[in-house]
Measured scan of single mutants.
Amino acid sequence: MDALKSAGRALIRSPSLAKQSWGGGGRHRKLPENWTDTRETLLEGMLFSLKYLGMTLVEQPKGEELSAAAIKRIVATAKASGKKLQKVTLKVSPRGIILTDNLTNQLIENVSIYRISYCTADKMHDKVFAYIAQSQHNQSLECHAFLCTKRKMAQAVTLTVAQAFKVAFEFWQVSKEEKEKRDKASQEGGDVLGARQDCTPPLKSLVATGNLLDLEETAKAPLSTVSANTTNMDEVPRPQALSGSSVVWELDDGLDEAFSRLAQSRTNPQVLDTGLTAQDMHYAQCLSPVDWDKPDSSGTEQDDLFSF
C-alpha cells in the first residue's frame, strides 16, 4: 500500500511530472533526481522514447528462454528487412502500455495491464526491452520488442512496467475491499429498513384510530445511509488515497477476473515476472533518469539497429 499512497501523494503535489519523457535525446524537461521519484509518476504514465523492432507469436506467457528466442527472431526479421526502425513513445501506467508513433502521434497499440504476463531486458541484446501480452483480438500470446538507447534504459522500462503492474494490483485490492464494505453496509441498511417496515402498523389501523404518522421519526431512520450505499452501487469504487486528485481509476471486468485468478494461483500475485536478476534490479533502481541518457562506457552510441 505504500507504493499506492506515495504515488497518489506525488501526483497530487505535481501532476505535471508524469508528462516528462525519457530517452528522447535531450528533449525532456528537468528530471527527478532518483528512481523513487520517477516511480511516483506512474499514475498518469511515464513516457519512454524507443524504437519498435516488431512482434512475434509465442506459445507460453512467460520465460527467459522463451523471450530470448522470440527477441532473436524479431531482431533477425528487422535486420533482414533493412528498413529504419519506427520511433515510438511507450506510455507506461497502472492501466497498461500505450504505444504511439512519434511522427504521426497515431495510436499503435493499447495493452491493458492485466494482459501483460512478462517483461524483460534481454541478456543477449542488452539494449532490447520486450514484453509478452495476450492479444486483445484473440487468445494468442505476442512478444513485442523495442530497441532502447542503452542497457540502462531497457532495464528502466522493464522495472517501470513491473512497478505499474504492482500498483494496478494494489488498486484492485483496495477497490475489492471498498466494494465488500459497501455491499455489507448496503445489506445491513436493508435489514434495518426491513425491520422498521415489519414493526410499522398498517396504514388502515392508523387511520381508524385517528393517529398521525410521525414524519420526524421517519426522517431519523437510516434511510439516507441505505440510499447512499445503493444509489451508486454500479459505480466502481476508487482508492481513497486518490481522493481529490485528477486521476480516475476504473476497474473493468477483465482486470477484476484476471487479478482474482492471480490472487488464487500465485504466492506473490502482485509481482510481474521479469528477466532481471536481483543485481540488475538493484543497479537500475539506483540510477537517476539522467543516467539513462548518458552514453555507455563501451563506446559511442549508434542510432541504428545494427549497432548491437
Results as ranks from 00 to 15, higher is better:
residue 81 S to M: 11
residue 79 K to Y: 10
residue 279 Q to I: 08
residue 174 V to M: 05
residue 216 E to A: 08
residue 299 G to W: 05
residue 85 L to T: 00
residue 276 L to H: 11
residue 87 K to D: 04
residue 67 S to M: 13
residue 132 I to S: 06
residue 269 P to W: 04
residue 129 F to Y: 03
residue 150 K to M: 10
residue 35 W to Q: 07
residue 270 Q to F: 04
residue 156 A to I: 11
residue 134 Q to M: 13
residue 46 M to H: 10
residue 185 A to Y: 13
residue 23 G to L: 06
residue 33 E to R: 10
residue 197 Q to H: 04
residue 156 A to S: 14
residue 72 K to L: 04
residue 247 V to D: 15
residue 122 D to V: 00
residue 301 E to L: 07
residue 221 A to T: 10
residue 195 A to S: 03
residue 52 Y to Q: 01
residue 111 V to T: 11
residue 179 K to E: 11
residue 211 N to F: 02
residue 114 Y to M: 01
residue 296 D to I: 03
residue 38 T to P: 06
residue 126 D to F: 00
residue 29 R to S: 15
residue 139 Q to G: 12
residue 118 Y to K: 15
residue 243 S to N: 07
residue 222 P to K: 11
residue 99 L to T: 14
residue 58 V to H: 00
residue 149 T to Q: 08
residue 303 D to N: 07
residue 285 Q to K: 06
residue 237 P to W: 07
residue 225 T to F: 03
residue 168 A to M: 14
residue 72 K to W: 15
residue 278 A to F: 09
residue 45 G to F: 05
residue 123 K to P: 14
residue 9 R to P: 12
residue 149 T to W: 01
residue 299 G to P: 01
residue 224 S to L: 03
residue 27 R to L: 12
residue 127 K to Q: 01
residue 49 S to T: 15
residue 199 C to N: 05
residue 296 D to L: 04
residue 137 H to A: 12
residue 171 F to Y: 15
residue 108 I to P: 00
residue 94 P to F: 05
residue 266 R to Q: 11
residue 284 A to C: 15
residue 82 G to Q: 06
residue 144 H to M: 15
residue 214 D to A: 10
residue 58 V to L: 13
residue 176 K to I: 04
residue 196 R to D: 08
residue 122 D to S: 00
residue 231 T to Y: 07
residue 38 T to E: 13
residue 288 S to M: 08
residue 289 P to C: 09
residue 100 T to Q: 09
residue 119 C to R: 00
residue 302 Q to K: 07
residue 149 T to L: 13
residue 129 F to T: 08
residue 147 L to P: 00
residue 140 S to W: 07
residue 272 L to S: 02
residue 150 K to F: 14
residue 170 E to R: 04
residue 220 K to V: 06
residue 21 S to A: 07
residue 205 S to T: 13
residue 127 K to C: 00
residue 81 S to R: 11
residue 175 S to F: 02
residue 147 L to R: 00
residue 293 D to R: 03
residue 144 H to C: 15
residue 118 Y to E: 02
residue 40 E to G: 11
residue 90 L to S: 00
residue 209 T to F: 04
residue 134 Q to I: 02
residue 4 L to W: 06
residue 99 L to S: 15
residue 162 A to Y: 06
residue 59 E to C: 12
residue 219 A to R: 09
residue 101 D to G: 13
residue 153 M to L: 15
residue 146 F to K: 00
residue 23 G to N: 02
residue 284 A to G: 02
residue 157 V to W: 01
residue 9 R to C: 14
residue 42 L to N: 12
residue 59 E to K: 15
residue 66 L to Y: 12
residue 103 L to E: 09
residue 244 G to K: 03
residue 79 K to N: 00
residue 144 H to F: 11
residue 220 K to D: 13
residue 42 L to H: 13
residue 214 D to H: 09
residue 175 S to R: 13
residue 33 E to L: 14
residue 227 S to W: 05
residue 297 S to L: 15
residue 83 K to P: 04
residue 240 Q to W: 12
residue 76 A to L: 02
residue 285 Q to I: 06
residue 306 F to H: 01
residue 25 G to F: 09
residue 64 E to W: 06
residue 132 I to G: 12
residue 288 S to N: 04
residue 14 S to T: 10
residue 238 R to L: 13
residue 78 A to C: 14
residue 128 V to Q: 00
residue 41 T to S: 05
residue 4 L to T: 11
residue 234 D to S: 08
residue 30 K to W: 15
residue 249 W to H: 04
residue 24 G to I: 10
residue 160 T to E: 08
residue 135 S to A: 11
residue 44 E to G: 06
residue 94 P to T: 08
residue 77 T to I: 07
residue 203 L to P: 08
residue 61 P to S: 02
residue 72 K to M: 15
residue 58 V to F: 01
residue 72 K to R: 05
residue 237 P to I: 04
residue 113 I to D: 03
residue 70 A to C: 08
residue 143 C to F: 14
residue 72 K to A: 07
residue 226 V to A: 09
residue 168 A to W: 02
residue 166 K to M: 06
residue 207 V to R: 15
residue 139 Q to P: 12
residue 107 L to Q: 07
residue 49 S to Y: 05
residue 260 S to W: 09
residue 273 D to P: 06
residue 246 S to E: 07
residue 204 K to T: 05
residue 301 E to Q: 07
residue 70 A to N: 12
residue 200 T to Y: 05
residue 261 R to M: 12
residue 118 Y to D: 02
residue 7 A to Q: 12
residue 283 Y to A: 15
residue 100 T to V: 05
residue 21 S to Q: 09
residue 109 E to P: 01
residue 130 A to G: 14
residue 279 Q to W: 14
residue 297 S to K: 10
residue 173 Q to R: 14
residue 105 N to V: 09
residue 201 P to S: 04
residue 231 T to E: 03
residue 142 E to L: 11
residue 137 H to F: 06
residue 47 L to R: 13
residue 121 A to F: 01
residue 170 E to T: 08
residue 105 N to Y: 09
residue 67 S to H: 00
residue 119 C to D: 00
residue 62 K to A: 12
residue 169 F to L: 02
residue 50 L to I: 15
residue 262 L to Y: 02
residue 285 Q to N: 09
residue 194 G to C: 11
